[in-house]
Design a protein around this nucleic acid. Structure first.
Lengths: 223, 223
DNA sequence: TAGATTGTTAATCGATTAACAATC
DNA sequence: TAGATTGTTAATCGATTAACAATC
């Protein structure tokens, strides 16, 4: 049964797809018509070889002697990323972070439409943030199922994050994007992407620390 | 000159360090005294072998027949991550995201002290957000140098991000944590960590799309 | 001492890079 | 046609896993 063996695409490749997508979008903006794997690699800091290997995971998008058509490749990658259909999102937690994400235009621009925020705070319920209404947390299950919401963003405090994920797992939601600093689990068929903001800061701190040490070592050596 | 060859630690290892740190912190909280590489790996989803390899990049922290002392290892990793000294941060951009980060307790808890927010908006300048004052962007160079600020967080709109990074490069700042959706560059000696929020969302979208396709394929096959 | 578990070397696996025939 | 650049196979490189002697 070799025919339906799904060639698993590695996470490393997947995490590069948004970079290609963004870069091609910028080229498109500049009215660039075609691009070679070499040029694309140069811009992104990848080798031409890697660019070709990456893209060939998904199909043959190029043409020998020509390269890749920017618009076509942009659209192909959008399709691979699932950006050809509009996604409907809700944000759970209407605190500062929830509000920040609700106002972040980049999401809408890529077809992620934010329908509502949800919160338990009666002072927030009924208000609206940059045109996005804040609803009562009590109504979330009904709302998600009724509006065929795809993706829920969790921006509640750590203590409540798993509980929210459990509630969401009872709905028709397909993806959870979690900003609370815990690894939340969801029901089967629900894809979870955990964001670890602190990790990025600690990595920065490590690199600052390391560069300081390296400089110190250099100095010692020069003496 | 083999003696000062710095064995470069791979990025993959570095990005795991915050996970070890967090996990050990939780074990410490639970008063667990010792932990084996096997147990630590089990919790984090790594192999015991990988745990030992990772840690041995930085020293010999364990003891045969015993494992690792939780508190000691926690402190060692904190030191490696540069968490033994307090870091001073400022946030550039007092919009919703800047405000959200200013109120995020996890940073302080790990020794990252937020001294101030900076903005150009006269309505915000002079106010304070959860005890953190908002200053005029004009004063940022003086403030950073005077207060020996380590790290600057950029939460301004994309258009202004590089300009802010250029300004910061004129100061004694050591690290930049950039949330604007552009890859900012900084002067020599300044470490930059770019956060790509949208990338995470696109990766989630890809995985949702992929799982949908996989299920479709399965169905076709079953028929 | 005996059992456990490390640090470390060797084997395996996977991802990146190089090379080149195919072809536009 | 000649030049360019792909898709793809082979070679290399690096990271993960396995194995085991050292030792607490």
């Amino acid at each position: 049964m070799a025919s339906d063996e799904v060639k698993k695409v590695s996470l490393a490749v997947i995490r590069r797809l948004p970079k290609y997508h963004k870069c091609l979008g910028e080229l498109l903006q500049k009215n660039v018509e075609r691009v070679s794997s070499q040029e694309l690699g140069r811009i992104l800091g990848f080798t031409a070889s890697q660019v070709r290997q990456d893209l060939n995971n998904f199909g043959e998008f190029g043409q020998q002697g020509y390269g890749y058509n920017v618009e076509q490749l942009y659209n192909e990658i959008a399709k691979i990323l699932g950006l050809n259909t509009e996604h409907k999102m809700v944000i759970v937690g209407a605190g500062k972070l929830g509000q920040a994400l609700a106002g972040y235009g980049d999401f809408e621009r890529h077809g992620f439409k934010i329908l509502a925020l949800f919160d338990v705070n009666p002072n927030l319920i009924g208000s609206s943030i940059r045109g996005v209404p804040v609803h009562d947390m009590k109504d979330i299950i009904y709302f998600i199922n009724e509006n065929e919401v795809d993706i829920a963003v969790i921006t509640v405090p750590r203590e409540n994050a798993q509980e929210v994920a459990d509630t969401l797992s009872q709905t028709l939601i397909k993806g959870i994007w979690n900003f609370a600093p815990v690894e939340v689990k969801a029901g089967p068929g629900v894809i979870v992407e955990n964001v670890h903001l602190l990790d990025g800061l600690l990595t920065l701190s490590y690199r600052m620390n390391e560069s300081r040490l390296t400089q110190k070592l250099k100095k010692i050596h020069e003496e």
